[in-house]
């Protein structure tokens, strides 16, 4: 379970990016994170992925109270999180195989096991034939699939996706969403930031909506209604 209690985020220029944000994510849930540009979606993703320290409030993830003063305690929590970026963030000096294997290498898994897992996963995302390619030789959709494979290779409890379809066309976006749906059915908690109403209507899920740093939670039906009205 993931719990945010009255969390606030303020940057050095003192502007409040997130104000008094409270919510709970149950295991296996799927939430969209919506809001206009600058509403604080990426900031919330950064807080959830433990890349950003909150200015106020309490965060509890998987039974651990998040405290940046105890860095070593953050490591096991981070290992239960997968993150997919809009711009993929693949390491261009590594092959597709090495990129996907990286989280397992960090976890010090034996080489044989890594090879087996990576092979299986790349076949699942349909990139079994690109194992030795370098990211710059792949299309946007292929790069995003590598990024998803890297995020889920450790079978994370929480998968965060920051506008993963932002740079992709509709057909490829739909394929990616189907991958996310499969992961959701396997019990992964998913938070996906998006501003694409078509996706929300096509694959309905509850919504965390940010407006000027204030969070509003919506059911799947409310989310679809808002999507239909074009007022995400």
């Amino acid at each position: 379970m993931i719990e945010f209690q009255r969390v606030a985020l303020r940057y050095d220029d003192k502007s409040n990016v997130l104000k008094d944000v409270s919510f709970t994510l149950n295991p296996g849930s799927f939430h969209y994170l919506t809001g206009a540009s600058g509403a604080g979606k990426t900031s919330l993703i950064r807080l959830l992925s433990l890349m950003q320290k909150a200015s106020a409030g309490k965060i509890n993830m998987f039974g651990t109270s998040i405290d940046y003063n105890h860095r070593s305690e953050l490591v096991p929590v981070r290992r239960r999180i997968g993150l997919v970026y809009q711009d993929y963030r693949l390491l261009n000096h590594l092959t597709v195989y090495e990129n996907v294997a990286l989280p397992l290498k960090i976890k010090k898994l034996p080489r044989g096991q890594i090879k087996e897992h990576v092979g299986e996963l790349l076949n699942w995302v349909g990139l079994g034939d690109k194992i030795n390619s370098y990211p710059r030789y792949l299309s946007g959709g292929e790069q995003q699939r590598v990024s998803i494979a890297r995020a889920v290779i450790t079978q994370p409890h929480l998968l965060l996706a920051d506008e993963p379809t932002g740079n992709l066309d509709n057909a490829i976006s739909e394929k990616l969403l189907k991958l996310f749906e499969q992961l959701h059915r396997m019990g992964t908690t998913i938070v996906m930031a998006t501003h694409n109403p078509d996706i929300i209507m096509r694959f309905p899920h509850p919504q965390l909506h940010l407006d000027n740093g204030i969070l509003e939670t919506r059911t799947a039906r409310e989310a679809v209604e808002k999507g239909r009205m074009g007022t995400l």
């Binding site: 981070r78 963030r89 976890k107």
Partner: peptide
């Protein structure tokens, strides 16, 4: 950015 990414992956 890469160090951030590695941290997110659970690198110490």
């Amino acid at each position: 950015d890469v160090i951030d990414l590695l941290h997110v992956m659970g690198a110490t």
